[in-house]
Simulated assay, not measured.
Amino acid sequence: MEVFGLTTIYVDPKKKHDQIVKLSDGSYGVMKPKKEKAGIAYQFNFTNHMHPGFIMKHKPVNGDVENVHSIDGKQTFKIEWIS
């Protein structure tokens, strides 16, 4: 199983709805809040097929690191606020 390096997702903490996010490798994605039984979760989907989409079960926090396992191997994403 291949392990990919750390990719940073730049998130605007002021936006409360769907937002386009930029990644440290220059690609883009979308972060969408979703209502779930336990509260709000955040769905991440990316335009670059090298990055698997994932759901974060809590509000993104600056510095959070999420490990995502996909058919292509493990990827690590870090959340970083933009101003």
Rank of each mutant, 00 (worst) to 15 (best):
A38P: 01
E2Y: 15
K34L: 11
H49D: 12
F77L: 01
K57A: 11
D12G: 03
G53C: 13
T47V: 06
G53K: 06
V30M: 08
H49C: 04
V65L: 08
E80Q: 15
S83Q: 14
A41T: 02
E66I: 13
P52V: 06
I9N: 07
F4P: 01
Y10F: 14
Y42P: 00
T8R: 00
Y10I: 04
K14M: 10
V68S: 09
D18G: 07
T7D: 03
P13M: 05
G26F: 05
G5M: 07
V68T: 09
I71C: 02
I9W: 07
N67P: 00
I20R: 11
K59M: 10
K74Y: 11
K35R: 14
K37D: 15
M56C: 05
N45Y: 04
K22A: 14
W81Y: 13
Y28I: 09
K15S: 10
T47E: 12
N67S: 08
I20S: 12
F54M: 10
T8Q: 01
M50K: 11
G29H: 02
N48I: 01
E2F: 15
M1I: 02
S24C: 02
Q43I: 06
F46M: 00
H58T: 12
E66R: 12
M1H: 08
G26Q: 08
V65Q: 12
G26E: 10
I71N: 11
K37F: 14
A38S: 15
E80V: 10
G26W: 03
E80Y: 07
Y28V: 06
H17Y: 07
G5K: 07
V30C: 03
T7N: 04
G73E: 05
T47P: 01
I55F: 00
M50R: 14
D12F: 01
K32P: 02
P52E: 10
K78Q: 15
I9Q: 08
K57W: 10
G53N: 14
P13G: 05
N45R: 13
V3F: 04
H69Y: 13
S70I: 06
D25R: 04
P60H: 03
P33A: 05
I20D: 09
H17P: 00
V30K: 07
Q19H: 01
